[in-house]
Protein backbone atom coordinates (compact mmCIF):
# COMPACT_ATOMS: atom_id res chain seq x y z
CA UNK A 1 0.00 0.00 0.00
CA UNK A 2 1.13 3.50 -0.79
CA UNK A 3 0.23 6.74 1.03
CA UNK A 4 -3.02 8.49 0.21
CA UNK A 5 -5.24 11.26 1.50
CA UNK A 6 -8.24 10.27 3.60
CA UNK A 7 -11.31 12.52 3.65
CA UNK A 8 -14.07 11.98 6.17
CA UNK A 9 -17.16 13.94 5.16
CA UNK A 10 -20.19 14.12 7.44
CA UNK A 11 -22.90 14.33 4.78
CA UNK A 12 -23.71 12.56 1.55
CA UNK A 13 -23.65 15.83 -0.36
CA UNK A 14 -20.21 16.67 0.98
CA UNK A 15 -18.99 13.18 0.05
CA UNK A 16 -20.22 13.45 -3.53
CA UNK A 17 -18.50 16.83 -3.76
CA UNK A 18 -15.18 15.26 -2.77
CA UNK A 19 -15.33 12.67 -5.58
CA UNK A 20 -13.97 13.40 -9.02
CA UNK A 21 -15.71 12.26 -12.21
CA UNK A 22 -12.43 12.22 -14.11
CA UNK A 23 -10.00 10.83 -11.55
CA UNK A 24 -10.08 7.05 -11.03
CA UNK A 25 -7.57 7.36 -8.15
CA UNK A 26 -10.25 8.99 -5.98
CA UNK A 27 -12.72 6.50 -4.61
CA UNK A 28 -15.23 6.18 -1.80
CA UNK A 29 -14.49 3.74 1.02
CA UNK A 30 -17.00 2.40 3.52
CA UNK A 31 -16.24 -1.03 5.00
CA UNK A 32 -13.18 -1.16 2.81
CA UNK A 33 -12.75 -4.94 2.87
CA UNK A 34 -12.69 -5.25 -0.93
CA UNK A 35 -10.82 -2.01 -1.51
CA UNK A 36 -8.12 -2.95 1.01
CA UNK A 37 -7.51 -6.18 -0.91
CA UNK A 38 -7.03 -4.23 -4.13
CA UNK A 39 -4.71 -1.76 -2.44
CA UNK A 40 -2.67 -4.48 -0.75
CA UNK A 41 -2.30 -6.28 -4.07
CA UNK A 42 -1.12 -3.01 -5.64
CA UNK A 43 -3.84 -3.10 -8.30
CA UNK A 44 -5.38 0.09 -6.89
CA UNK A 45 -3.18 2.96 -5.69
CA UNK A 46 -5.50 5.74 -4.55
CA UNK A 47 -4.58 9.39 -4.34
CA UNK A 48 -7.58 10.04 -2.12
CA UNK A 49 -10.17 7.92 -0.36
CA UNK A 50 -13.48 9.45 0.68
CA UNK A 51 -14.68 7.65 3.80
CA UNK A 52 -18.45 7.26 4.09
CA UNK A 53 -18.23 6.04 7.66
CA UNK A 54 -19.14 9.32 9.34
CA UNK A 55 -22.29 9.85 7.24
CA UNK A 56 -25.16 9.09 9.61
CA UNK A 57 -27.89 9.36 6.94
CA UNK A 58 -26.61 6.22 5.17
CA UNK A 59 -27.14 3.73 8.01
CA UNK A 60 -30.73 2.72 8.50
CA UNK A 61 -33.07 -0.17 7.85
CA UNK A 62 -36.72 0.78 7.51
CA UNK A 63 -39.93 -0.35 5.88
CA UNK A 64 -41.34 2.55 3.88
CA UNK A 65 -44.70 2.03 2.17
CA UNK A 66 -44.23 -1.71 2.27
CA UNK A 67 -40.75 -1.51 0.78
CA UNK A 68 -37.52 -2.37 2.59
CA UNK A 69 -35.10 0.55 2.49
CA UNK A 70 -31.49 -0.02 3.54
CA UNK A 71 -28.86 2.70 3.86
CA UNK A 72 -25.79 1.99 1.76
CA UNK A 73 -23.25 1.89 4.57
CA UNK A 74 -25.25 -0.56 6.66
CA UNK A 75 -22.85 -3.39 7.53
CA UNK A 76 -23.85 -6.78 6.14
CA UNK A 77 -23.96 -8.20 9.66
CA UNK A 78 -26.59 -5.65 10.63
CA UNK A 79 -28.63 -6.64 7.59
CA UNK A 80 -28.14 -10.32 8.44
CA UNK A 81 -29.51 -9.89 11.96
CA UNK A 82 -32.30 -7.45 11.11
CA UNK A 83 -35.75 -8.74 11.97
CA UNK A 84 -37.25 -6.34 9.42
CA UNK A 85 -35.11 -7.89 6.68
CA UNK A 86 -35.96 -11.41 7.76
CA UNK A 87 -39.69 -10.64 7.70
CA UNK A 88 -39.49 -8.85 4.37
CA UNK A 89 -37.20 -11.16 2.40
CA UNK A 90 -35.84 -14.10 4.39
CA UNK A 91 -33.74 -15.16 1.40
CA UNK A 92 -31.48 -12.17 2.11
CA UNK A 93 -30.95 -13.33 5.69
CA UNK A 94 -30.13 -16.86 4.52
CA UNK A 95 -27.81 -15.70 1.74
CA UNK A 96 -25.87 -13.45 4.10
CA UNK A 97 -25.12 -16.36 6.41
CA UNK A 98 -23.00 -17.91 3.66
CA UNK A 99 -21.36 -14.67 2.50
CA UNK A 100 -17.63 -14.55 3.24
CA UNK A 101 -17.11 -14.72 7.02
CA UNK A 102 -18.36 -13.04 10.17
CA UNK A 103 -15.49 -10.55 10.42
CA UNK A 104 -15.99 -9.41 6.84
CA UNK A 105 -19.76 -9.15 7.32
CA UNK A 106 -19.17 -7.05 10.44
CA UNK A 107 -17.37 -4.46 8.32
CA UNK A 108 -18.39 -4.78 4.66
CA UNK A 109 -21.43 -2.76 3.62
CA UNK A 110 -24.47 -3.23 1.42
CA UNK A 111 -23.43 -0.42 -0.91
CA UNK A 112 -19.93 -1.81 -1.23
CA UNK A 113 -21.22 -5.28 -2.09
CA UNK A 114 -23.04 -3.70 -5.04
CA UNK A 115 -20.58 -1.01 -6.12
CA UNK A 116 -17.64 -3.44 -6.20
CA UNK A 117 -19.39 -5.27 -9.07
CA UNK A 118 -17.55 -8.51 -8.50
CA UNK A 119 -19.73 -11.13 -10.22
CA UNK A 120 -18.92 -13.60 -7.43
CA UNK A 121 -20.74 -11.50 -4.83
CA UNK A 122 -23.78 -13.19 -3.31
CA UNK A 123 -26.14 -10.25 -2.85
CA UNK A 124 -26.49 -8.97 -6.45
CA UNK A 125 -28.23 -12.06 -7.90
CA UNK A 126 -30.51 -12.26 -4.87
CA UNK A 127 -31.43 -8.59 -5.11
CA UNK A 128 -32.04 -8.83 -8.85
CA UNK A 129 -34.35 -11.80 -8.32
CA UNK A 130 -36.24 -9.77 -5.70
CA UNK A 131 -36.63 -6.83 -8.11
CA UNK A 132 -34.57 -4.49 -5.93
CA UNK A 133 -33.30 -1.05 -6.98
CA UNK A 134 -30.68 1.39 -5.71
CA UNK A 135 -30.92 5.14 -5.18
CA UNK A 136 -27.80 6.81 -6.51
CA UNK A 137 -26.64 10.28 -5.47
CA UNK A 138 -24.72 12.47 -7.87
CA UNK A 139 -23.75 16.16 -7.96
CA UNK A 140 -26.94 17.07 -9.78
CA UNK A 141 -29.30 14.94 -7.71
CA UNK A 142 -30.49 11.41 -7.19
CA UNK A 143 -31.55 8.72 -9.64
CA UNK A 144 -32.91 5.24 -9.22
CA UNK A 145 -31.42 2.20 -10.98
CA UNK A 146 -32.75 -1.37 -10.87
CA UNK A 147 -29.98 -3.64 -9.49
CA UNK A 148 -30.52 -5.66 -12.67
CA UNK A 149 -29.20 -2.69 -14.67
CA UNK A 150 -26.38 -1.70 -12.30
CA UNK A 151 -23.60 -3.87 -13.69
CA UNK A 152 -21.84 -2.88 -16.88
CA UNK A 153 -19.26 -5.66 -16.86
CA UNK A 154 -16.64 -7.50 -14.85
CA UNK A 155 -15.96 -5.28 -11.78
CA UNK A 156 -17.78 -2.44 -13.56
CA UNK A 157 -20.99 -0.55 -12.79
CA UNK A 158 -22.96 2.08 -14.70
CA UNK A 159 -22.21 4.61 -11.94
CA UNK A 160 -20.19 7.72 -12.73
CA UNK A 161 -17.03 8.15 -10.64
CA UNK A 162 -18.70 10.97 -8.71
CA UNK A 163 -21.87 9.05 -7.94
CA UNK A 164 -22.57 7.13 -4.75
CA UNK A 165 -25.07 4.43 -3.91
CA UNK A 166 -27.15 5.99 -1.11
CA UNK A 167 -29.66 3.26 -0.44
CA UNK A 168 -31.14 -0.01 -1.52
CA UNK A 169 -34.87 -0.59 -1.91
CA UNK A 170 -36.36 -4.07 -1.94
CA UNK A 171 -40.03 -3.98 -3.00
CA UNK A 172 -42.79 -5.85 -1.22
CA UNK A 173 -42.60 -9.53 -2.15
CA UNK A 174 -46.37 -10.15 -1.99
CA UNK A 175 -46.06 -13.79 -1.07
CA UNK A 176 -43.33 -14.58 -3.56
CA UNK A 177 -40.93 -17.24 -2.36
CA UNK A 178 -37.21 -17.10 -3.00
CA UNK A 179 -34.03 -19.13 -2.70
CA UNK A 180 -30.34 -18.62 -3.27
CA UNK A 181 -28.04 -21.56 -3.86
CA UNK A 182 -24.30 -21.14 -3.87
CA UNK A 183 -22.21 -23.83 -5.52
CA UNK A 184 -18.55 -23.95 -4.56
CA UNK A 185 -16.05 -26.34 -6.12
CA UNK A 186 -12.72 -25.83 -4.32
CA UNK A 187 -13.82 -25.80 -0.68
CA UNK A 188 -17.08 -25.58 1.23
CA UNK A 189 -16.51 -21.88 1.89
CA UNK A 190 -15.20 -20.23 -1.23
CA UNK A 191 -16.23 -17.73 -3.81
CA UNK A 192 -19.09 -19.43 -5.64
CA UNK A 193 -18.38 -21.22 -8.91
CA UNK A 194 -22.05 -20.56 -9.53
CA UNK A 195 -24.75 -18.62 -7.69
CA UNK A 196 -28.41 -19.15 -8.49
CA UNK A 197 -31.12 -16.88 -7.09
CA UNK A 198 -34.77 -17.45 -7.84
CA UNK A 199 -38.01 -15.86 -6.78
CA UNK A 200 -41.31 -17.49 -7.63
CA UNK A 201 -44.97 -16.64 -7.42
CA UNK A 202 -46.65 -19.96 -6.89
CA UNK A 203 -49.87 -21.68 -5.93
CA UNK A 204 -48.69 -24.60 -3.86
CA UNK A 205 -46.26 -26.37 -6.19
CA UNK A 206 -47.49 -24.66 -9.35
CA UNK A 207 -45.29 -21.79 -10.46
CA UNK A 208 -47.11 -18.78 -11.90
CA UNK A 209 -43.97 -16.90 -12.79
CA UNK A 210 -40.32 -17.03 -11.79
CA UNK A 211 -37.36 -14.73 -11.70
CA UNK A 212 -34.11 -16.68 -12.22
CA UNK A 213 -30.67 -15.09 -11.92
CA UNK A 214 -27.25 -16.73 -12.16
CA UNK A 215 -23.95 -15.24 -11.07
CA UNK A 216 -20.26 -16.01 -10.54
CA UNK A 217 -19.98 -18.19 -13.64
CA UNK A 218 -20.85 -15.19 -15.80
CA UNK A 219 -19.33 -11.73 -16.43
CA UNK A 220 -22.14 -10.11 -14.46
CA UNK A 221 -25.22 -11.52 -12.73
CA UNK A 222 -27.61 -12.56 -15.53
CA UNK A 223 -31.33 -13.16 -15.69
CA UNK A 224 -32.16 -16.40 -17.47
CA UNK A 225 -35.18 -15.42 -19.51
CA UNK A 226 -35.60 -18.71 -21.37
CA UNK A 227 -35.47 -20.54 -18.06
CA UNK A 228 -37.98 -18.13 -16.55
CA UNK A 229 -40.29 -18.84 -19.47
CA UNK A 230 -39.82 -22.59 -19.06
CA UNK A 231 -40.52 -22.36 -15.33
CA UNK A 232 -43.65 -20.31 -15.74
CA UNK A 233 -46.64 -22.62 -15.36
CA UNK A 234 -44.47 -25.45 -14.08
CA UNK A 235 -46.45 -27.92 -12.02
CA UNK A 236 -44.07 -30.86 -11.65
CA UNK A 237 -40.40 -31.67 -11.17
CA UNK A 238 -39.92 -32.45 -14.85
CA UNK A 239 -40.83 -28.85 -15.63
CA UNK A 240 -38.26 -27.61 -13.12
CA UNK A 241 -35.67 -29.73 -14.87
CA UNK A 242 -36.72 -28.23 -18.18
CA UNK A 243 -36.12 -24.80 -16.69
CA UNK A 244 -32.64 -26.00 -15.71
CA UNK A 245 -32.04 -27.25 -19.25
CA UNK A 246 -33.17 -23.91 -20.66
CA UNK A 247 -30.80 -22.02 -18.36
CA UNK A 248 -27.93 -24.33 -19.32
CA UNK A 249 -28.67 -23.63 -22.98
CA UNK A 250 -28.83 -19.85 -22.67
CA UNK A 251 -26.08 -19.09 -20.11
CA UNK A 252 -22.76 -17.75 -21.38
CA UNK A 253 -20.23 -19.15 -18.98
CA UNK A 254 -16.59 -18.50 -18.13
CA UNK A 255 -13.89 -21.14 -17.58
CA UNK A 256 -11.66 -20.44 -14.58
CA UNK A 257 -9.98 -22.08 -11.62
CA UNK A 258 -13.35 -23.11 -10.24
CA UNK A 259 -14.33 -25.13 -13.27
CA UNK A 260 -14.57 -25.32 -17.04
CA UNK A 261 -17.46 -23.66 -18.86
CA UNK A 262 -18.67 -27.10 -19.95
CA UNK A 263 -18.83 -28.27 -16.34
CA UNK A 264 -20.47 -25.07 -15.14
CA UNK A 265 -23.16 -25.56 -17.77
CA UNK A 266 -24.05 -28.83 -16.04
CA UNK A 267 -23.99 -27.07 -12.67
CA UNK A 268 -26.41 -24.46 -14.04
CA UNK A 269 -28.70 -27.22 -15.26
CA UNK A 270 -28.77 -28.93 -11.86
CA UNK A 271 -28.72 -25.87 -9.59
CA UNK A 272 -31.47 -23.91 -11.36
CA UNK A 273 -33.81 -26.86 -10.87
CA UNK A 274 -32.65 -27.26 -7.27
CA UNK A 275 -33.11 -23.56 -6.56
CA UNK A 276 -36.66 -23.64 -7.92
CA UNK A 277 -37.38 -26.67 -5.74
CA UNK A 278 -35.89 -24.87 -2.74
CA UNK A 279 -37.96 -21.75 -3.41
CA UNK A 280 -41.14 -23.79 -3.64
CA UNK A 281 -40.29 -25.35 -0.31
CA UNK A 282 -39.27 -22.04 1.27
CA UNK A 283 -41.23 -19.67 3.45
Amino acid sequence: MTPFELAEPKTLKEAVGLLDADDPTVRPIAGGTALMLMMKAGVFRPSKLVSLRAIKELTSIEIVKGELTVGATTPLAVLEHSEAVRMHAPVITRALRTLSNIRVRNVATVGGALAHADPHMDLPPVLIALGARVVVQGRSGARTIPVADLFAGYFETVLAKDELIASLIVPAQDGRRAAYLKCTTRAVHDWPALGVAVSVAADGKAIKNASIVISAATETPMRMSAAEKAASGATDDAALRRAGDAAAAEAELISDGQGSAAYKKELVRVYVARALRAALGAA
Binding site: L6, G32, T33, M36, L37, K40, S51, R53, A77, I102, R103, V104, N106, V107
Partner: peptide, 13 residues
Protein backbone atom coordinates in the same frame (compact mmCIF):
# COMPACT_ATOMS: atom_id res chain seq x y z
CA UNK B 1 -16.66 -5.38 20.82
CA UNK B 2 -17.09 -6.68 17.27
CA UNK B 3 -14.54 -8.92 15.57
CA UNK B 4 -12.85 -7.52 12.49
CA UNK B 5 -9.89 -8.54 10.33
CA UNK B 6 -7.23 -6.12 11.46
CA UNK B 7 -5.24 -6.47 8.25
CA UNK B 8 -8.17 -5.03 6.27
CA UNK B 9 -8.99 -2.31 8.78
CA UNK B 10 -7.39 1.12 8.48
CA UNK B 11 -5.99 2.40 11.75
CA UNK B 12 -7.63 5.77 11.06
CA UNK B 13 -11.01 4.09 11.46
Amino acid sequence: GTAVSGCLYLAAF
